[in-house]
Structures are given as structure tokens and as C-alpha cells.
Design a protein around this nucleic acid. Structure first.
Lengths: 200, 200
DNA sequence: CAATACTTGTTGACTAAACAACACATGTTG
DNA sequence: CAACATGTGTTGTTTAGTCAACAAGTATTG
């Protein structure tokens, strides 16, 4: 039960993610029970357990899903220039952190930190994949470290902005963090490489 | 494969109906092939044949579905008075005929007549069920005939309006047809009976 | 405190959907 | 005309989803 190419699996997971997303608008994750999620998704309760460990596992996957949605809606397929893509990713990440922060002001601090660590994780994965696709010369171990520096920088500045200055426009912060990691990114700004990395 | 209580069946049919509905906005039913419908519904082509004889069968069920949607969206659940419900049904039927006529101006005459006969069929079923629910005294055979007169009257006047005067407001026609069948409906205007009949 | 009602996570039998393969019809291109 | 492609409708096998029933944990209430 993990072959992602079966349309039933894609559909079922979509239904579960959307159902939880809807319910989270009205209630805290703690107050939501599995039966409710299943009902809203028009699925059997047992089916949720076929796909996710429990509702918190589903919740984590929802975060991943929302992050991906945010990135892909920002990343216009017409951006040819790699540095432009990077800027969009930074902006999207900032927005994502902000939206998650707003949506969760009243929630347990424990969920805030879950959201943040998931965001960082996904940001790292995305940047690592992009770097790998755009620069096959360097060894993986080096790309890993550079991806870590870039992703943690973006994440850190984003979080700093959300926590302390989120009424201001993020543009200045975006500019600065990009400038500071530019010397790393230079190695990956290959203009002829247009494809955006597929990320899991 | 016909137990309507299995959520998978409800979901699959909904997906197929919606897929065809979307495709009909851009193409004629003739130009649409089964593969396209299945793809849009994110279903396997063979699954369509589990539920419908062919795409024309699906098309007929779509008409039924759209008619039901039209009726239920018009019929506010707060209408306590039975005569008010009847008026809503007439208006909804007129609107349905008009929309179907507009949507199919360029289509084969054969589909126009299919649409019309389906509309009449559904209108009869609906009115028959309402009458039966509201008047258990009369024998079925009599209710059948009275339902036929009422439903054909409504249908006929509606079609006449659509064909000849559809730029004018339908209100006058609605008024008149209701007045003309009022003596039949009187037997069924039971104020304390609020429930609207479930129709297949 | 015990009785009661829910919620959770799991199991196994049943049913619907996916999928590839099939024969057959219809079309269209050299 | 034959060769080729494309759409139709059906079949058998495999896999996913449904459902009722289960034990175990956790509130709620008298």
C-alpha cells in the first residue's frame, strides 16, 4: 500500500489531506478525532490507518503538502533564470512561515515547533534537489553541506522576520539573505538548466 | 455493483458525472471519448462500464442529476407551504429547460429531444412522489393520472415558453399553468405535511 | 469508586476499482 | 486495396477501500 501510481491512493490521500485542512479552520488538531476526518473525506475510518500512522502523522503530511503547494504556485513555469527561481522559493518560504504562524497563534507551542521543523526539512530537501540537478560535478557530501547552509539561512531569516518584523515587507530580508548566500549559489546558477527539480 | 450505500460507488459516479459535465462545456458528446471522461475523472476506463452502459447512458444520468440539482437548490427547506413548493418546482423546471436549451443550441436535434423527454420523465416522477406522500387516501392509479396531467402541463408550458417567448420573464406562464392545474393540486395541498418527497 | 460512553488502533472477510489484454469495429493514409 | 492507427466494450487478476467487530485506553457521570 504505497505504490504512488495507483489513482485510488492519490485520491484517498488527497481526500484525507483536504478534509483535515478544512477541519483545522474550525478546530485545533487535538479536538479533531479520526472519525470526523474520515467522515468529511467520505472514507472509512480504517482507511486513514492504511495511509497514516495516526492523525498527527496525517497532520505532518498536510504541512508538507501545503508547503509544496505554496512553492509550486509561486514558481511560475516561465522562470528561465535559476536565480529568479531561488528568489521565488525564498519569498514562498517566508510567506509559508507567516501563514502557518498566523493560523496557529493559539495552538500549542509544540505544534509551532513541529511546523517549523517540517518547513526547514522541506526547504532543505527542495534546495538539495535543485542543487544536485544543476551541478553534477560536485560530490554529494559537499552539496549536502551547502544546501544545509542555504536552507537554514533562508529558514532562519524567515523565522526572524516572522517573529520580530512581520508587519514590514519581507523584501528587504529576502534581498539580504540572498546576497549573503550568493557566493554558494553562484556554482548552481546555470542559465541553460531550466528544469525545476521534482521534490518528493 | 449497485448498492448505493457504498461510499466508493457514490464517489465514482460523482467523479464520472462531473467529468462529463466539464467536458460538455467544450465539446459535443459525440466528440468526447470514454478515455477522456475516465482521465478527467481520474478513473480507469473500465470502471465507467461498471456503472454505465456507455457514454450516452452516463449522459442521460447526468441530465437526471442536473435536474435534481436544479430542483433541490430552488427548494428551500424552509418552505412550509406545499403550494409554494409546487411553484418552486415549476420555476426550476422552466429554468432547467431554458439552460439545457441554451447549452445545446448547436447540438443534434436528437439530443434536444433526449433532454426534453428526460426532463418530462423526472418531472413526472417528482410530482408523482410528492402527491403520493401527501395523499395516501387516493388509489395509485388515480394519482398516476393526475401526476401525468400536472407534470405534462408544466413541461408543455415550459417548453412553449422556452421555444417562443424565452426572452420574457417566465412568471406569467408559471402563474397560468399553476392556476390551470390548481383544482387537481388542491387535493394535495396539505399544509401540515412539510416533507419534500425523496425522489430516485 | 464503578458504571458508562467514546475514542483509538487493528483484524479479516467482502466488494469495488485498477489495469493489462483481448477481439472487434471504425477510420485514415499511402 | 492493405496497413495502420484509434476507439469500443469485455474479461480475469490484483490491489485498495469498506465495514463490523474487537480489545484497550480515556474521559464523564452518578
Amino acid at each position: 500500500m504505497s505504490n504512488h501510481s495507483d489513482p485510488r491512493i492519490v485520491r484517498t490521500r488527497r481526500l484525507l489531506l483536504d478534509a483535515l485542512f478544512d477541519l483545522l479552520k474550525t478546530k485545533d488538531i487535538k479536538k479533531i478525532n479520526v472519525q470526523e476526518i474520515a467522515k468529511k473525506a467520505t472514507l472509512n475510518r480504517a482507511t486513514l490507518y492504511d495511509h497514516y500512522k495516526d492523525k498527527y502523522d496525517l497532520f505532518e503530511h498536510l504541512l508538507v503538502d501545503l508547503f509544496h503547494q505554496k512553492i509550486t504556485q509561486r514558481l511560475s513555469p516561465f522562470d528561465k533564470v535559476c536565480s529568479e527561481k531561488f528568489r521565488h522559493i525564498v519569498v514562498a518560504s517566508f510567506e509559508f512561515l507567516q501563514e502557518m504562524n498566523l493560523g496557529c497563534t493559539e495552538r500549542e507551542p509544540k505544534f509551532k515547533s513541529l511546523i517549523e521543523s517540517k518547513t526547514q526539512e522541506q526547504l532543505f530537501k527542495l534546495i538539495y534537489q535543485m542543487m544536485k540537478n544543476n551541478c553534477s560535478k560536485k560530490p554529494d557530501s559537499e552539496i549536502e553541506i551547502e544546501a544545509a547552509v542555504v536552507s537554514w539561512s533562508i529558514f532562519g531569516v524567515g523565522l526572524h522576520w516572522v517573529r520580530n518584523h512581520n508587519s514590514k515587507s519581507p523584501d528587504e530580508y529576502v534581498q539580504k539573505v540572498l546576497a549573503l548566500v550568493a557566493h554558494i549559489n553562484e556554482d548552481y546558477f546555470v542559465p541553460e538548466e531550466n528544469k525545476i527539480a521534482e521534490f518528493a
